[in-house]
Structure formats: structure tokens, C-alpha cells
Amino acid sequence: MAFNLRGRSLLTLKDYTKEEINFLIDLSETLKKNKNAGIFPKNLENKNIALIFEKPSTRTRAAFTVACTDEGAHPEYLGKNDIQLGGKETIKDTARVLGRMFDGIEFRGFKHETVEKLAKWAGVPVWNGLTDQYHPTQILADFLTVKENFGKLKDIKFAYVGDGRNNMANSLMLGASKVGMDFKIVAPKKLHPDKNLVEEAKEFAKETGATITITDDVDNGTKGVQVIYTDVWASMGEEDVIPQRIELLEDYRVNMEMINNADDEVIFLHCLPSYHDDDTDMASKYPGIKEVTDEVFESKHSKVFDQAENRLHTIKAVMVATAGKQF
């Protein structure tokens, strides 16, 4: 079933129904098959897309740029020093200017209220490429990867292990509650998610049959799960707390013991970048910072590069569905 999402923004998955999320996943599968077959319908032909980046990016920038190009659009990168956003010009005014010139706007930055203001005033679809609170385009890629491995999303046993308060934990919990997963956040009590957000997710879960569990028990939290997911222990801007995070999360590092405690067919996911070996400046400076062992990261269970590729196909689906000519 197709859904009319034309003109819609994507700021958080709170705003999308189970059916709409599944539609975007299905559309992602179709567009991925098309690309692999060399079929490019140019659903965004003659469209111009603004890509605003306050934070550096590899996957989000690359995915939006390639997705635009594949579908016939022109992507325009606007870095934090390229425009006046919030500096010499209000966000409201910038939104109204860009909305007159572009057919869609991606924003990746810090405050979630910035992307909300852009969406309120731009008059064109605005897509959240990451804020401190939410990362919805990443979740769509994660869920496409899960579906490719298990053929479904509903009732999947999914454990997020690590910092339970960051944008990935928040977004995965909301997404899982929307599609009916058995979802757990496994984190030390000091890093449990906001209680109000947990209650909000549990309300969504009542409609879909999802279950939401927050626990600090690693063994019980990962027992028999089909997906183990983690993220870095300190997000951008949190470098000063890395030593404390290492001490707090040492027992939550994803290792083969954790993998062996899960389902035999468990997959390991990570939004990347990851500290899994010694070949980064950060790992050299903080040897204990690794949130996953290299053994797990390079194992048959790891689907992180399928997941990274799926950023492209799911971002393409979001843009085609909300700003394209065909859907």
C-alpha cells in the first residue's frame, strides 16, 4: 500500500505511523533493487536540495549527496561557515529564504529545536540528518538491515547496549515501539533514558504490541536477542567525559561472550563510526574507549557495512516519498 507523504518533513519517527514507516522501508527495498539493476527513474529530477551541516559527517553527507544524484536532483552542501544560520540571521529567516530556492532541506546539527524551526518556516520538506535528540534516517537504515536479515520487523528481539540516553537509544526505542519490536535498552542506571520518553514509547507500544524494557543487567538484557546494537560511548561534544564513560561502561562493551548469549543468528549493528581497534587517534589516546571488540566487529555477525550502505537507500526513499514527483 502506498502512502501520500508528499510535503511531509521527517524530524522524528514519533510523527510517523507504523504503516508509514513500513512503507518507507518497502520503498527503500524497491529503490535499492532499482539501483543494483541500473534503473534510475529520476524521481527528483530538476529538484534542488539544501544540505545543512553543523556537525561533520561521512555517511549522512555521502548518502544524501548520492541519493540526490541518483534521482536527478542537485545537492548543495551548506557548512556551518557557509551560511548565517542562527548567527547573523535568524533560523526563521534562513528557513524562509532557503524554502523559496530549494525543494527540500536536510539539517544535521546540535539542537533539535533548530530543525523544528526550519520545518515550521521553510514551506518545503525538512529532514533531520541528526540532532542531539534524534536520528530518524539512521533508524530507517537499521530497520531495513534487520528486515533483510530476518524478513520482518515485528516481534524482533532487539537490544541496544551502552549509553541509553543518546540520540541513537532514543530513536531506536521510538522506532521499535512504532513497528512492534521486543526492545531493550541495556545500560547502567546513570545512563538510562529520560523517563518521559520511555513512557511515550510505551504508549506507542500499546498500539503495535511492542515491549519496551530498560535494564542494567547485561546477561538478561541480551539473552536470546536477535539484534545487538551499540554506539560510541561519548557523542560529539562529550570528549571531556570520556574517562568517566569508560569506567561506567566497561561491562557493556559488546564482545563475543555477549554475542554467544544471544540468538544463534544474532546480528551486530552499529551506526558508525566505531572504536573497535587501535587505528584511530581517539583509541590511541583512550585505549579503553572501544565499545565493541574487533573480534565482534569483523565477525560474521556484523552487518555494519550493509547498514551503512542502507543509509543511502532509506534516505533516498524519504526524499522521493516526500519531495519526489512519482510518490
Score class of each variant (00 low, 15 high):
11 L>V: 01
20 E>K: 01
20 E>S: 12
26 D>T: 11
31 L>C: 08
33 K>F: 07
43 N>M: 13
55 K>I: 06
56 P>E: 14
58 T>M: 06
63 A>M: 09
64 F>W: 02
67 A>Q: 05
67 A>L: 11
74 H>V: 02
75 P>M: 12
79 G>L: 07
81 N>V: 09
91 I>R: 01
93 D>I: 10
94 T>V: 07
96 R>D: 05
100 R>I: 10
105 I>K: 04
108 R>C: 12
110 F>C: 10
111 K>W: 06
113 E>T: 15
113 E>V: 09
116 E>F: 01
119 A>G: 03
119 A>N: 04
122 A>F: 11
133 Q>R: 12
136 P>S: 00
138 Q>I: 02
139 I>C: 00
139 I>K: 01
143 F>N: 05
149 N>M: 10
152 K>P: 04
153 L>S: 10
155 D>V: 04
158 F>A: 05
159 A>L: 05
162 G>D: 10
165 R>T: 12
167 N>Q: 07
167 N>H: 06
170 N>W: 04
174 L>I: 15
181 M>G: 00
183 F>M: 05
189 K>Y: 02
192 H>I: 05
197 L>N: 07
198 V>R: 00
199 E>W: 05
205 A>E: 00
208 T>Q: 08
214 I>C: 00
221 G>E: 07
221 G>D: 09
229 Y>I: 03
238 E>Y: 03
251 D>M: 11
257 E>H: 09
258 M>R: 07
264 D>K: 15
275 Y>W: 08
277 D>H: 06
279 D>E: 07
283 A>W: 06
288 G>K: 11
292 V>D: 02
302 S>G: 13
303 K>S: 11
306 D>N: 15
314 T>S: 09
321 A>M: 12
325 K>G: 09
326 Q>S: 15
327 F>A: 07
